[in-house]
Amino acid sequence: MKNGRTFIKRVVLDYWPYWVGGVLLGILNTLLACFDKPWGITGNIAQWGLAVCRAAGGQPETWFYVWDEPLKLNFAELLFSRGTVINLGVIMGVMLAAVLAAEFRVKKVKSARQLALGIAGGLLMGYGARLALGCNIGGLVNGIASQSLHGWVFGLFLILGAWAGSMFMKYLVSKNGN
């Protein structure tokens, strides 16, 4: 049972504790809010969706959809926009962390069921985040940080959603084995 203890040491003691990550994220987000505006993720992804829609012949600029920054419907402009750069930075940072920890690997899709569940989950999360005009970063964390009531309301329903999702997951596991 020695290997197990070594793993605990490596993961729990040698990995950064959550609070260190939290404090660092808080400092970086404060800098971003002071010099630019608070961190958000899904607004940029929606801009990409609208740009694709426009390229396919749609007219998203005529839609009724609340928006807090100028629409960027040109791919070149969008690629070098603040949101895209920050989102690509997040992805590269996560990859770098995985490589440094020697945990990077390309995961295989195991079954059509896993793929379908993943796509359905992604669509629900993305659609929900844009209806709420923000994900847990832009909506919850920065909502609360800016002393707005909406952050707390967002948090309450996030907890309810996570609870419902966990119940659904438990039901799936008890029914299928995994």
Binding site: K110, Q114, M169, V173, S174, N178
Partner: peptide
């Protein structure tokens, strides 16, 4: 449990 994310592996192991 390759490709499965939390909490599925733990729930399955418990089952």
């Amino acid at each position: 449990m390759l490709g499965e994310v939390c909490p599925v592996p733990l729930l399955t192991a418990q089952k």
